[in-house]
Design a protein around this nucleic acid. Structure first.
Lengths: 234, 234
DNA sequence: TGTACATCAGTGAACGCGCGTTCACTGATGTAC
DNA sequence: TGTACATCAGTGAACGCGCGTTCACTGATGTAC
């Protein structure tokens, strides 16, 4: 009689293992079919079990999709968080965080597509995906705050924000990155859009025939955008 | 006996009209179901015709999808081309082109998703989509070339490209924007990624809860990125 | 330690559904003489 | 201008398919005494 929550019973361990196998199989299917076509029956077939058995583990198809989404956000978030402290100085932290996001996206393109591609038709993301989804942004925010505290973030006085945007950026800074100037927050958001825009274009094939050396181009982009935001060597 | 190609016969006119109705109905269905779920049967139902009749107009489902994609690229391309010559000076041309792309994307979000969202699973874009797809990029390139000729494009001497990237950008410039410096070509590509990244984030809902005044934020982004590329007032 | 009962993973058949595509056909519109 | 024939848009039934979800069930594993 083990206290639940501390050591899992045999049944619980088996249950978790099967649940994991379902997720792995679903992920594999995602890669070949796309999120919209994720099929419970195909997953069950892959695992050699009756399709109805999957319902012991997931209430519905959308429930399985949610599990995949949360897992993807958490996996990417963990990578970004770890990379955001690597290297010497803020600019290098920034670049390493960006590289981590790209590396993850290129190694797990279908899952990247799942969370940053077009919304899955008919699927409504539940509340519980919000926290995992914001991990990358929070990692970048933390990096920005530290850079600011270290005096490695320089504001460009010629950057002027209209009032409405200034107010918004100030509120955002107060919430997540205290002390950082509104114009820098705005530029960081622009860079964040750039980062995911470029990664999406690369993953979705929009760069084909236009840029060959995508590694070099990415390095150029994150360096240029890092300076654009205001990172300066220590 | 009208010479074909000059004046269409009655039959041809009717045929074109029905073809147009199919495309319109398909576009409407796209908006509610997403590209992956576009169904010939549903389109035929909407038009009150037998599903087999659609095959008189399109060889297959993918053929219909291709027509929608080409139509979307051409519509967006035309808007961008027109806007790229509006206003005073290159920076304003640039911003107007960017605004046109965003306006189009927000007014036809499903079609934007179709051409700039995640690839439709199982669909291979045929050759004939390539030319329409490149219209926006060519419009931006033309704008860049004109700005350069007018001396309104200033190179930042501190921007250094690695050899491989310099070679590539030089080739790209020779092909599409003769005379423009490699470092400016690279920055323009970064800005292009930023533009579509931000629009995609807005259309796909990733900005929700983060940025309220998306108009102001977009204006800030295209102005900042325009300067980043090197546009200077005349 | 052994027995009676409760829990629960997994089965397999069935429900009703929609899909893309083919095919032999009907009937209207266009063409050639 | 009138007739015979060819073209072609559109029909409706059928093909074989896969899907999500429900349900009554079997049998193994765990629990209480």
């Amino acid at each position: 009689m083990e206290p639940s929550g501390v050591v899992a019973s045999a049944r619980e361990r088996v249950r978790d293992a099967v649940r994991g196998e379902i997720i792995v199989a679903a992920r594999a299917q995602l890669a070949t079919e796309g999120a919209g076509a994720l099929s419970l029956r195909a997953v069950a077939r892959e695992l050699g079990m009756a399709s109805s058995a999957v319902y012991r583990y997931f209430k519905s198809r959308d429930d399985l999709l949610t599990a995949l989404i949360v897992e993807a956000y958490d996996s990417l978030g963990a990578e970004a968080e770890a990379a955001a402290t690597l290297g010497q100085g803020s600019l290098e932290h920034w670049r390493n965080a960006c590289r981590a996001v790209r590396r993850w996206a290129l190694s797990r393109p279908t899952e990247y597509t799942l969370i940053y591609g077009s919304p899955v038709p008919g699927y409504q993301a539940p509340e519980l995906t919000v926290a995992p989804a914001s991990r990358v942004l929070f990692a970048l925010a933390a990096l920005l705050a530290e850079a600011n505290d270290a005096g490695e973030l320089v504001e460009d006085p010629s950057t002027v924000l209209p009032t409405s945007l200034d107010t918004e950026m100030r509120a955002l800074a107060d919430f997540a990155i205290p002390g950082v100037a509104p114009s820098i927050v705005a530029k960081a958001l622009v860079a964040w859009n750039q980062l995911f825009g470029q990664i999406s274009f690369e993953v979705f094939g929009q760069l084909h025939g236009l840029v060959q050396d995508t590694d070099a181009f990415f390095e150029f982009a994150i360096d240029a955008m890092g300076r654009f935001v205001g990172f300066r060597p220590a």
